[in-house]
Design a protein around this nucleic acid. Structure first.
Lengths: 231, 231
DNA sequence: CTTAAAAATTGTTTTATATCAATTTTTTAT
DNA sequence: ATAAAAAATTGATATAAAACAATTTTTAAG
């Protein structure tokens, strides 16, 4: 399942560390490095589970992961996590429990850092603390957009939003290879997978996008934007 | 509209200051106090508006306020704010803009504190910073529950959740006087006001609660809990 | 290569919920 | 106290979206 690997390098030299660490001194980075270890996950594997204790800051260094709330019979995907993003839930400053689960969508590698080290640095380095608060805030703002999309838009608008999220924020290219399942697409947009599939089909028929296999290209982003905005 | 009032006291003596300030020294409290002023809002008045700059930390000292996102044609109420809670949105560490609006539901009084003072103390006092992060985290966890309720429960479950929120977290008593409108109830539960009204009526007919005028009493919390949990 | 299992797709039916419209009650202003 | 405005309520209708069921395609395993 989960394999501890020998550290291939140290944080100071790492060129794929999360930019949240930009304000740390070499000494502070060394502290992070000393408590850090690297783990590989195969696609589908659970990284951590909602409700369990939360001793690590998880930084995804390759592959793609998802964080999702296990709700009433179905999941809601809060975000996809790509390199170099980290996963650090709100429970860490509350009761040390995870309030969502995380799993690998593609094969992943991650660096895990002891949260006590992380919290120590938050207390000692105000720039780091401020950067952390800023990122928590950005996450919060993103969640606001998401909840408005989920609660006030109809399915077409929600799928449009998810497609923009994937092309602009996750895969960052226009013809892109969907590495998430249709079920994930549904869990991102808060609908049944059948509905998600049907709407993609409609978008194809209207020439808004092409989708063959898992290769998706947005042909008419303007119209898709329009659909996103009219709900 | 908004009246600046003479400060009736200073923060050090105040017995209704937000508990987020518990870790501040007398000197730090004096700093807060020096930048602080007190404001009254009549029911219905806007405290601040989504999209506008965000120069104040707002602490509600009397009355009831709501924070809400103005979405696509309707509002989503994120929370009700009662004494002594504060309003401090995620924009403050991002672009200094509000990402939601706030308004008075009942007549309100609030203390406003310059955010630069607040941010200065976050940098200088790690206990205060940690307490702040903890509260942001709690807010985040609350929002998770809310989004799951809104996206995965049917209307009965969502109304049940809102009733528990009101009785347990806001009014904190069981027969309580609803000071929010039916529209607010709908905006808390993500449905039309007609639907909200209809479901309250059903709950009345089933003996789960009584509601005459705006006085609401939960008669069968167990059954209501059941409805909340079965979605 | 073949088979089994999982994922994706499609059509049909049912249901939850919004919308619209009309009426009553409550609140506010004069 | 009265009129006007706003809020709450109720019923009827329309529709978005889920659930169900069946089929096809893709992936994984032996």
């Amino acid at each position: 399942m989960v394999n501890k690997l020998h550290n291939p390098s140290n944080c100071a030299d790492c060129n794929c560390k999360s930019s949240i660490f930009k304000n740390l001194s070499p000494l502070e980075l060394a502290l992070i490095n000393s408590s850090r270890f690297q783990v590989s996950y195969k696609a589908g594997e659970i990284i951590f589970k909602q409700g369990t204790p939360s001793p690590y800051f998880v930084c995804v260094t390759s592959g793609l992961a998802k964080i999702y709330i296990e709700g009433y019979g179905k999941n809601l995907i809060l975000a996809l996590i790509k390199p170099v993003d980290y996963i650090f839930g709100p429970g860490i400053y509350v009761d040390n429990r995870h309030y969502y689960s995380a799993s690998a969508v593609e094969d992943c590698q991650a660096c895990l850092v002891d949260v006590t080290v992380f919290k120590k640095l938050i207390r000692e380095n105000p720039d780091f603390a401020e950067e952390f608060i800023k990122r928590v805030s950005l996450q919060s703002i993103f969640n606001f957009d998401q909840v408005i999309s989920l609660t006030q838009k109809q399915m077409h608008g929600r799928i449009a939003d998810v497609i923009f999220y994937l092309s602009d924020k996750i895969y960052c290219q226009n013809p892109f290879e969907l590495t998430i399942s249709r079920q994930d697409l549904a869990d991102l947009s808060g609908m049944s997978k059948e509905s998600a599939i049907r709407i993609l089909k409609e978008f194809k028929e209207e020439g808004i996008l092409t989708l063959s296999g898992n290769s998706l290209e947005v042909l008419n982003p303007k119209q898709l934007r329009q659909i996103s905005e009219t709900g």
